[in-house]
């Protein structure tokens, strides 16, 4: 007999998600996930000016907006047989990469860092121990005890 665990809501994501997992002898044997929110943007788009689609579609997610918009622009172009010049493709790739970086920062600091960082007690942290941990994983020059001390006393 397997036991079912339900995680709902799954936090630290944009939107709403529910995951159910069947566990047997301490191992997951089956799993189901469902988005528990729907807005019907596909229906809202019907009958509108295709040039406007990107703006609606970008609103699908507040963290990774532009990729949805870019995908929508490409779909419209595909449907209308529009081929864009290489320069435009490059501009879009730059937009995409910029957003890729932005998205990772937002996701780490605003969404899941709160599971790892206890913001409320950050000021009680020991600068020495903090710098030791930081230096063990990165050689970033500002991960030094004195710098953490300055922030703590600021």
């Amino acid at each position: 007999m397997s036991e079912r665990i339900v995680v709902d809501p799954v936090t630290r994501i944009e939107g709403h998600l529910r995951v159910e997992a069947d566990i047997q002898d301490g191992k997951i044997v089956d799993a189901f996930s469902s988005g528990t929110m729907v807005r019907g943007i596909e229906k809202i788009l019907r009958g509108r000016d295709p040039r406007d689609a990107w703006a609606f579609v970008g609103r699908v997610c507040g963290v990774c907006t532009s990729v949805h918009s870019l995908a929508s622009v490409r779909s419209v172009e595909d449907a209308l047989d529009i081929v864009i010049p290489p320069n435009a493709e490059m501009v879009r790739n730059i937009m995409f990469c910029t957003q890729y970086m932005h998205d990772h920062v937002v996701h780490f600091y605003h969404l899941h860092a709160l599971d790892w960082v206890d913001v409320v007690s950050a000021l009680k942290a020991d600068p020495k121990a903090t710098s030791e941990i930081a230096q063990s994983i990165s050689n970033w020059p500002k991960a030094r005890q004195v710098i953490f001390l300055i922030y703590k006393n600021a």
Binding site: V38, R39, G40, I41, K43, I44, F56, R59
Partner: peptide
Amino acid sequence: GCVQSAKPNPTGA
């Protein structure tokens, strides 16, 4: 209401 309440507002946002 923003985008989800745009016509025909399928979910009654």
